[in-house]
């Protein structure tokens, strides 16, 4: 699905086509949109997955994914090349999602997400996705916002408490409390679903 990454950032000598990540970034900085599109193609899946899980809403995730890539284009010069580009991009996407959540909270008050039709996997596609995974994805989408962000960033994405604290501007203790709350709510939700499935 994704093109292989050339970590050394060399151009493909046979075709003359730029394939290395650093070269793609460098070309994008010069305004080469095709190079940026290649970066997009390589990273869209992970960025969209992150936005989808953090928002629990397919349409909003699509819009925020677009915002994240537009911001990446704009801030590309700030990527120092020290770490992995994908990680930098996902951090940027997390910021976009968190800023959006704050803005929505300010404008509309508490966030209300209708649980149905969030664009998450539904039953009937079990041939591709395991039933428990579908239940877990939907249960994550059903979490309150703060708990959902903490769980997705820590348990799904693998960030540490202090890293999440830096991204969200919250204290580590708050992140841990949200994470523990998320796990508790998820287990309750999944146990209920498991129970109802056993009954049928």
């Amino acid at each position: 699905m994704n093109e292989p990454v050339n970590p050394e950032g060399r151009a493909d000598s046979a075709s003359g086509r730029i394939t290395g990540e650093l070269d793609l970034i460098s070309a994008s900085l010069q305004g080469d949109r095709r190079a940026f599109e290649t970066l997009y193609t390589r990273h869209i899946g992970r960025v969209f997955a992150l936005c989808l899980r953090m928002t629990g809403d397919k349409r909003r995730a699509e819009s925020l994914t677009q915002d994240a890539f537009i911001r990446a284009w704009s801030k590309l010069a700030t990527f120092q090349g020290r770490g992995e580009f994908g990680a930098w991009l996902r951090r940027l996407a997390v910021n976009v999602v968190i800023e959006d959540a704050r803005r929505r909270k300010r404008e509309r008050g508490a966030e209300i997400i209708p649980f149905v039709d969030q664009g998450l996997p539904t039953r009937g596609s079990e041939t591709q996705l395991h039933e428990e995974r579908i239940d877990l994805e939907r249960a994550i989408a059903d979490l309150p916002r703060g708990a959902r962000h903490a769980f997705v960033l820590h348990d799904v994405t693998g960030l540490r408490h202090h890293e999440i604290g830096r991204l969200t501007g919250l204290a580590t203790g708050t992140i841990k409390a949200q994470l523990h709350r998320a796990r508790k709510l998820l287990r309750e939700n999944l146990n209920r679903k498991g129970g109802s499935r056993d009954d049928t």
Binding site: G45, F48, R133
Partner: peptide
């Protein structure tokens, strides 16, 4: 942790 890292829109 086992959830897929990649979801295509």
């Amino acid at each position: 942790a086992d959830l897929p890292e990649d979801i295509q829109p």
